[in-house]
Design a binder for these strands. Structure first.
Lengths: 191, 191
DNA sequence: GTCTATAACAGGATAGAC
DNA sequence: GTCTATCCTGTTATAGAC
């Protein structure tokens, strides 16, 4: 390879990710993506021959991989529930920039007349996250059904707080969510 | 006026609203808007001289007016809290088609580098809704601070459940939210 | 008020030089 | 691997007939 990459893959995906999260799939024009990445449109096509769709696919895949490593897997460990949740809250705060950045699961979600190109991945991501939270709730003493209900509520609060933080232009709702996460999921546990 | 309108204003706004909610602002092309409304592009411009931006403005204004009449005002009445919430839940179920349609507050929300053209209206809408729920919680016996926290959580759950319903392709999360709304907001009240 | 036709532009995507 | 220049399609918006 004669000429080295001017932006490494990981960095490139991160920069593209910002654009998709800030503007949505339709709003992310190649001009914006090129500017944010520091590459020209043609260079982007060299890295992503299938174009914008592929960029979004890889951005989403990277986000899901991050989630797996930083949220799902840690939640499955055998540390005490509250401890795991505190650690995850810290990671989430960084991932969503304190509520200033949207979630791809929301931004890339299919319109009503689905399924869109991302539906399967998004659906799987929701299920995995719910499952992971539910496991923690069960570990804390809730029965299967109650644990799942708690987990779903936690995921709703996560996404709702992100929507509200953007809508209000304030990081407070998201910060509150993180602060209450452990209590919302675990309070009233049998043991 | 020689020729009558082929679609009355209210109906027109409703049809345009569907497109914006399903595809977002950028995704709502004039071709889609024309098809959904049954008018030609040129006719849309006759009704909305300022173009797509004006259409979205009016669609958003109509949604906020609906919210005022069907949610905010009823919540301020002096019926029993649980009764008011049950009535509002029914209205919300219709408004969001059982969770199948997204919320404009989410879909038109400003990207990170705000403020966008809708930011002010969206922010005001969130505040009004939180305020209305908080009043109900206070009416049920919570102090100001606790009532506000409950109200914020209810609004987060509303939007979170909508995001999740779209993501999972299931109306269940939204239906659960509605079923639990009264309990989430009021359980543990002093009186 | 509504339409067909079209202008003016931006978007995604490609060619070919370096 | 990256770039400039270009193509082509779809998008916003307007003109002018009915």
């Amino acid at each position: 390879m004669a000429r080295p990459q001017s932006v490494d893959d990981e960095d490139l995906i991160a920069r593209l990710s910002c654009v998709f999260r800030d503007t949505g799939y339709e709003g992310a024009s190649l001009a914006l993506l090129a500017e944010a990445s520091g590459l020209s449109k043609a260079s982007l096509y060299h890295r992503f021959p299938a174009g914008k769709q592929q960029m979004a696919d890889e951005v989403l895949a990277a986000a899901l991989a991050w989630y797996g490593a930083n949220v799902i897997d840690p939640l499955k460990g055998d540390a005490p529930p509250a401890e795991k949740l505190a650690a995850v809250a810290k990671r989430l705060n960084g991932f969503y920039s304190g509520g200033r950045q949207a979630c791809l699961l929301n931004v890339l979600a299919a319109p009503r007349a689905e399924p869109g190109p991302f539906s399967t991945a998004i659906k799987g991501a929701f299920q995995a996250l719910i499952q992971a939270f539910a496991q923690v709730a069960q570990q804390a003493g809730f029965d299967t059904e109650a644990a799942r209900a708690r987990a779903e509520r936690a995921v709703m609060l996560l996404h709702g707080s992100l929507v509200m933080s953007r809508g209000l232009g304030s990081s407070r709702p998201f910060a509150n969510f993180l602060a209450n996460l452990s209590g919302d999921l675990l309070d009233g546990a049998a043991q």
